[in-house]
Design a protein around this nucleic acid. Structure first.
Lengths: 288, 288
DNA sequence: TCCATTAATGCAAAATACGCATTAATAAAT
DNA sequence: ATTTATTAATGCGTATTTTGCATTAATGGA
């Protein structure tokens, strides 16, 4: 059963006149007549009561007219929706990102995405460092922003941005600028640091920092969550080293002292993921 | 867009294998391949991600699979329903009938109808004598049972049944049988009769009855409704002449004395009404 | 009774769909 | 690295379906 036939039927059911209908739908009267006939024989019922003079819907025809109008418009909507999925203008994508950029890069990126593709559904999730690539491979997430390069086959990634590291201290702390730091006074500080594996390259850079002052820090506490670390520093429980993206968070009472160390942000996705939504988002990211 | 194509698509979306699917739907792999291709080009989107080795739904394909499954089953249901309308196994018909047969012929007839066509919706309405044919012509009712022949063009009718008239008296009334009636004692009775026009031929028969005893009745009250008349007779307010179908009503305390007069019941419908439901009901009625 | 209208139909041409055989890409086996 | 097996796509000739034109036949109105 061709949907075009149903459209012809609907046109005829409005006009109730073969000639006029045929003209309106741009076929000949003979073609229209046969289309209706084959529709009737396909359904095994009569759609119109007709003689050489009049055309009138049967009860079954009337019923089908009403129902088919609804079904066809539903189908049209469905096809349009599917087209948007195809173009990557609709659909869902799940993104994992580190807490550190939730107030800096992420809002900008998300604004850009929703601006370009307002129908897109974006799911943001927090994924522990150790699970990131596994979740990506298992289709639990489609895009993950990390601070660590990966060498997995099948996972593509590109550098998105470079962050400076910063020493985070309370406002009333004696450290005001990079020059205030020395091996001696650093030794007297209590440090609150990220867990060893919250982005291993990031951890390594922090180690490098301590090494440059040639001492082993007194680590008071490890936390995986930057916002927790910031709260602890604000309460005066210690000082921290964080990517300076955190400066964009609402953090009164804190001073960020930039350090000459950088940490990269990378965006990762499955190489074989052909979801058009992903393609569109990557396009936006690359423009970034 | 042919629905058959969508069915092929759904089959392939289950199997995800052209050969197996083609075999299952009884076409060659080449035909299936082209069906899917033309479906894709019709929709302007890709349904499957495929190379020479693997077949996989795209997001749009996955979406359409789910939606089309629903739509197709809805359409199937609709077509089946329409088929039943065509066969007159479903649909609505509005029937008007006189009160007199609501406890005799009507229950039998309705039982027969619902037995043969359990899906049919029957609307029973009361229509005043004077409106019966007008309502029938104006499509307010489809079938009307009357006690009067009609000569309207475009209205067909056949005789359904013949009723005897009966004299209706309270049990304690001196009239016990037809022999008890005479011109003298009839004159002393108060009569409760139907309105002059509640089926004119019926009225005429009653007039004929009185004429046969050669007197003019003392008519205490006219009513269009048989059940009202019966109630009044039971209360002793007078005696009545009614079709003996009323015997089938629950009417304790009454005696029906059959009279040698008959009144016909006719069933009427529009000659040009091709509603299959009507045809089915008439078929049942004719068997009656 | 005649005329105008109009849905159905015979027929040939055009368009479409199909099956067969083959090709080409790719994953698995050696 | 090379071979083999699998399998979706495709070229081509055939079969089927659909179309338009012209005509027919039924019907309501003058």
């Amino acid at each position: 059963m061709d949907l075009q036939r149903i459209k012809y039927f609907l046109a005829l059911s409005e006009e109730l006149h073969y000639w006029k209908t045929a003209e309106k739908v741009n076929i000949t009267q003979s073609a229209l007549s046969r289309q209706i006939q084959s529709l009737e024989s396909e359904l095994g019922l009569q759609l119109f009561e007709r003689n050489k003079r009049n055309v009138k819907l049967t009860p079954a025809g009337q019923f089908l007219k009403e129902k088919w109008e609804v079904e066809l418009s539903e189908l049209e909507y469905i096809h349009q929706f599917a087209k948007q999925l195809h173009l990557g203008e609709r659909g869902t994508i799940t993104i994992a990102h580190p807490d550190s950029i939730s107030a800096s890069i992420m809002p900008d990126l998300l604004a850009k995405i929703t601006d370009a593709f307002p129908q897109l559904q974006i799911k943001l999730v927090q994924v522990l460092y150790e699970n990131q690539l596994e979740f990506l491979k298992n289709y639990k997430i489609d895009l993950v922003i990390t601070r660590d390069t990966n060498s997995e086959p099948g996972i593509k990634s590109i550098k998105l941005y470079s962050d400076h590291l910063a020493l985070v201290v309370p406002l009333d702390h004696p450290f005001k600028a990079l020059g205030d730091l020395s091996a001696e006074n650093l030794k007297q500080q209590k440090f609150i640091l990220p867990s060893k594996d919250e982005g291993s390259s990031y951890s390594e850079i922090i180690q490098a920092f301590f090494k440059s002052y040639d001492f082993v820090p007194d680590v008071f506490l490890h936390s995986e969550f930057g916002s927790t670390i910031i709260a602890l520093v604000r309460k005066g429980l210690g000082i921290a080293i964080l990517p300076d993206s955190y400066m964009h968070h609402q953090s009164p009472g804190l001073r960020f002292i930039p350090l000459p160390f950088k940490t990269d942000l990378l965006i990762n996705w499955r190489a074989d993921d052909h979801n058009p939504v992903l393609a569109n988002i990557l396009k936006l990211v690359f423009e970034y």
